[in-house]
Design a protein around this nucleic acid. Structure first.
Lengths: 316, 316
DNA sequence: ATCTCAATAAAGAAAAACTTTAGTATAGGG
DNA sequence: CCCTATACTAAAGTTTTTCTTTATTGAGAT
């Protein structure tokens, strides 16, 4: 028992509720012309005018009388159903992201997106202004090796590569000054080396032993020192002059720009990661306009960020 | 408050009611694949499974529980609304036709269409197997002058020209035989002339005075005699040997073929009408598949009929 | 009369929905 | 255990619907 003209009926209901096509159209987020077309299609099919257009607004035509109460109840119920399913709240974006990326990269930039899209709510790693709801996250951000397109079937959903990171030693400005004073050969002499595990699974991961071997002269037992799982905590340590750490500049670009941390050595003495930060979108998530906008924005911001790191590496 | 995924919700409701996608699809007159897609689209959008697919059929997923009663009520109400509007009965065709055409031409042929489309119901000029309903007729058949395409705007809706008619004297077979025996000059001598007003507004209308002047020799006061408004009644008069009438052969072709009436003179002694029988379809009416089929059939039948009259005129 | 606003018409563009074809899993029968 | 029938799913491509844009009409207000 297919029932055709669902959208026409919706428009009729909306028009009667709103009192004018224009307002009904606004309520349905379509143009007035489209609203008129929906209604007209049904009227033509039935060969009856369903709405009486009067100067004072719209009224139900007598032919509609029998159906109108049903219509109104039907759409009221549908609205309840939609609420129960959270169909309405299309303006919520749920993100699960590796927390360092979220804290260091996304959060500072997000204000900008939110300024442009004031009614989009976020839930990032469970926290945020969007209430907890049914359903999985819309977007997942990870640092991972690049997946071969051909490797099996893609895991359903689109994946954007945001940016690679660039690993290089980072220290506090104070420590940087001290290092600059030392001769090259023993420049790291006396500074504790901090180790960050965040990138350790990367195929091109740069460790202190690697770095020393390539650029660094002498240093006894470069593999020793405090290990950090998270970039954020390593960053805190560096800022309190605890030593140098090899970290990804992409996540720290802002801190470097604000001179909260600095590069003690030429940035060229570093290494691009093989993997990259990647955003994976749940299939279906991109149906929401808000998600499409977010994806576009995220990709653009990521590109800008990559650009900036590349410039930093080239110039420094 | 636009509510998206209306069709998805409809499919969910139908699937739960039917117990299987296949049956739901049948109920919605779509393919099972389409039904699955509708549901899947919504599930993806929400990021939740709404239906639990089990060997024993489909069940509502827990996530759906809150919404399900609303959904069911909503679609039940919609169905009521649709019934009230007769949205369902798509297989009814309402025709308003000039009654002579309906009685003499359409009705005899309609059986053939009905054989092909057994579940299409007709209401012709208010009578028929289709119940009385709201709304205007779907198709109007008139005998009228040809409208210039350019004359103003078309009166909304498509118009098909069915066939022109051919006016010529018609009589009963008995009278025909008697006429054939008479010499040409006084061949109409002694026969009452019957006058049919049906075609009188046509630009090329052929009347008895016209005919006598052109083909007929002498006849005193050819404009006198009984006048008939309708072809059917004139036909009755002719069949009871009341005299000769100038009538349209297109409507009488069957009667001529069955030798119920006959042409007392060569058919070439006649005149094509300027106007034609025309079918005007209400805008929107052709959305119904049944209407499209009817239109196609009607046009084909009309063409065949025109062909037949032309052959009759040429041969006789 | 002229202006403004809402509604309508028409055309083209965009998005949704559908069918087709092919493929996968599962239950029942040999 | 294997085969087959059945229901569902996936992907691709096509058709239909729906929407926006642009222009026009018509009614009421200035």
């Amino acid at each position: 028992m297919s029932l055709p003209y669902l959208k026409s009926l919706e428009a009729v209901d909306a028009a009667l509720q709103a009192g004018s096509l224009k307002q009904a159209a606004a309520a349905l987020s379509i143009t007035p012309a489209a609203a008129g077309q929906r209604i007209k299609a049904l009227e033509e099919f039935l060969g009856v005018d369903l709405l009486v257009r009067t100067r004072a607004g719209l009224r139900a035509a007598p032919e509609l009388e029998g159906a109108l109460p049903h219509l109104q109840r039907a759409f009221a119920e549908l609205k309840l159903a939609a609420d129960a399913l959270d169909l309405q709240r299309t303006d919520e974006i749920r993100i699960a992201a590796v927390s360092d990326w979220a804290d260091l990269w996304l959060t500072p930039r997000l204000a900008q997106f939110r300024a442009r899209h004031p009614n989009v709510m976020f839930a990032i790693n469970g926290a945020g202004d969007a209430p907890q709801r049914i359903g999985r996250v819309d977007c997942e951000v990870v640092f991972a090796p690049l997946e071969e397109k051909s490797t099996g079937r893609s895991p359903a959903g689109e994946t954007d590569i945001l940016f690679h990171d660039y690993l290089a030693p980072v220290g506090s400005p104070a420590n940087e000054r001290r290092v600059r004073a030392s001769p090259d050969a023993e420049r790291l002499e006396g500074f504790p080396l901090l180790h960050l595990d965040f990138y350790k699974d990367d195929a091109e991961a740069l460790t202190w032993p690697d770095w020393i071997a390539r650029y660094g002269g002498r240093f006894t037992a470069p593999e020793r020192g405090i290990r950090f799982q998270r970039v954020t905590t390593a960053l805190e340590a560096v800022r309190s002059d605890a030593g140098f750490v090899i970290a990804g500049l992409a996540l720290l670009a802002d801190h470097i720009a604000r001179a909260e941390v600095s590069l003690p050595f030429p940035a060229a003495a570093g290494q691009w990661t093989a993997g990259a930060f990647q955003a994976r979108y749940r299939p279906g998530a991109l149906r929401k306009p808000a998600m499409r906008a977010f994806r576009k924005w995220l990709s653009a911001e990521a590109a800008a960020s990559a650009e900036r790191v590349a410039a930093l590496v080239a110039s420094h």
